[in-house]
Amino acid sequence: MGCRPAAAARRHCQAVSTPLRGPDSLPQQLRIQVRVIGALLLRELVTRFGRENLGYTWIFAEPLILGLALGALHHISGHALPGGLPVVVFWVTGYMPFYLLRGLLNRAPGAVTGNQSLLYHRRITLLDVLIARNLLEGAAVSGAMLIFLMGFGMALDFWPDSWGTLLLGMVILLAMTHGAALILAALSIWTEMIDRVVHLFTYLSLPFTGSFFMVFWLPSEAQQAALLIPSVHCFEMVRHGLFGTAVPTHYDLTTMLTWVVGLNLSGMLLLRIARRDLMV
């Protein structure tokens, strides 16, 4: 038995999710969820980085160091880019969102097994756990990105064309990847294989995510194919925010938002079904 069709599952969920004391109103439930996610965020900070040895500053350190190394490599090798884009800026600002995407997906399967003891608190759902982790990761990478952009501004006098477009592109990428992470976390409850497959997948997918190429570099049929990949739209949007109209960018906001909603809804549904099969 275990996971069953929606009607039966709904009947059971109602029974087991009877509120603590009388029916909680929606605002009350939202307050509880915000409190839960806040508590999880702080706990995640302590467990991942501790309070010693620079502590929380390590959040930014890893993406910063990797980004610096990559930027330095490409500065030294000195290949020019189509459209005359600034080499170091292009690689580093492509790498930061990719780092976010890869981090979220790679860490998703472990989110369930590594946090099972949290589920002893009935208020905490797997969704809360993943939201807290992914928000933290998003904040960390955005922080690193901001530090780089300030650096580029001061050293190279390169400033983003539109901070708003840049930020929106990052946020949509985060929301999209979060939805995919929910699906992976749910699948990891049913099969441990997910954990191995995801690492392989994120590694091999690097050339296809859109982090290190631009759609206008490709021949036109390849452009159509590339735009089938949802993350490509996000990277294009981030670059639109960075470089403005200096180079052509291709992305469609409706497609992006459709992916965000689709991935998140399927992820939440799968997670809810899989939770019933989880042995804690």
Binding site: M1, G2, H12, V16, L119, R122, R275, R276, V280
Partner: peptide
């Protein structure tokens, strides 16, 4: 406690 769910 609600940590695990009943089958029926």
């Amino acid at each position: 406690s609600g940590v695990e769910f009943p089958e029926a």
